[in-house]
Structures are given as structure tokens and as C-alpha cells.
Amino acid sequence: MNIFRLAGDLSHLAAIIILLIKIWKTRSCAGISGRSQVLFAIVFITRYLDLFTNFISAYNTAMKVFFLGSSIGTVYLMYLKFKATYDHNHDTFRIEFLLLPTALLSLVLNHEFSVMEILWTFSIYLESVAILPQLFMVSKTGEAESITSHYLFALGSYRGLYILNWIYRYYFEGFYDIIAIVAGCVQTILYCDFFYLYITKVLKGKKLQLPA
């Protein structure tokens, strides 16, 4: 463990907590893409199947349990409990265009052709594009509540911090995983225009408005 990975995990944890607070406090999931949340739940389910077979540390297990529970819980809140506030009309990104290519790619480009390894690879590829429905929804509505933009900033930062972690591990541990690194860079790059808007607008107290 290193400071970059810890900061990344905490940023990821913060993002999920901010989202849960937003939905619970406002009792609404307006502006949130349910499709992205479904993709995140798939990412965690396919990645943490080794939860009971591979004990790494109490921290690792606790975080996996929290990420699994919160992502499934968020889908429940969005599609069942606060269903009436879910914005179907703006959450229209075709997620099959994300699921199929990443599934095929994980069958072709992986470290080892085994069930667990392919599911892990699929989860890595899917996570890199899972935010697209959310970013698409923000561009369609043309704006986002400030708490939603804080959620996106924390979520985008987490994988950016993981890139620093991979650089650190390469130089100090000689460890690197090219699949995680490439997917992590793609994932972080997708947030670039949002990061620009967040830093130039939201941090100055303005609302996040996308040029229509």
C-alpha cells in the first residue's frame, strides 16, 4: 500500500458516500445516471468474486464489501425506492455499446484465459467506460447539481490517483499491470473536460453549466 493508492481508495469511498448522501438527503436521484450505477455494480460484482477465496487484508475485504453493498444499494435506491425521481428521459446512453465491446476485448486481451482472470479483465475494461452514461446525461441536461459535480470529481480523481500509485509501484516494487494502467488512463482521460469545468466553475461557486 502507498499514499497514492490510499488516497485513491479514500477518494473512491468519498465519491460513493457523497452520492448516497445526495440521494438520501434530497430523496431524489435527479441528474444521476442509473445506467452508470448499474455498470458500476457489474464492475464490482465481476471484480470482487474472489472476496471469499482471496484474503488480502481486513482493509481490502472491508472496502470490497462496502463497494459491493453501496453500488447494489444505489441501484436499489434509484430503480426502486426513488424510482419516481429517476430521470429516464435524459439517461439514454446505450450501455450495450459498452458491455459488448468490453466483454469481447476481455476475451481477447487478457493475462490468462481463465474465468476469474477474464471476469477481472472485463471489470477493468468496463470500469474505464462506466461513467460515459453519466457524462452523457450531464451533457444532455446541460448542467449538474454541485453535489453531483463533487461526486464526479471524487470519482474521477480516484483512478487518476491510481495512476500515480502504478508509477510508484513500478519504480519501487517493479510491479505493473499494463491492462489496469491503460484502462485507468482511458478512464481518467474521459473526465478531463469535466475536470476543467469543475475547476474553472464549480470551485468558483458557479453551477456546472455545459455549453449546450
Binding site: 473512491h12 474472489d50 488480502i56 493475462h111 490468462e112 477481472w120 510491479f175 489496469a180
Partner: peptide, 10 residues
Amino acid sequence: SKAQEPKDEL
């Protein structure tokens, strides 16, 4: 390369 086991990152 053989998959890096065990995967210790979240």
C-alpha cells in the same frame, strides 16, 4: 505474462 496473483488492488 502470468496474471499477477493475488490481485491486491481494489
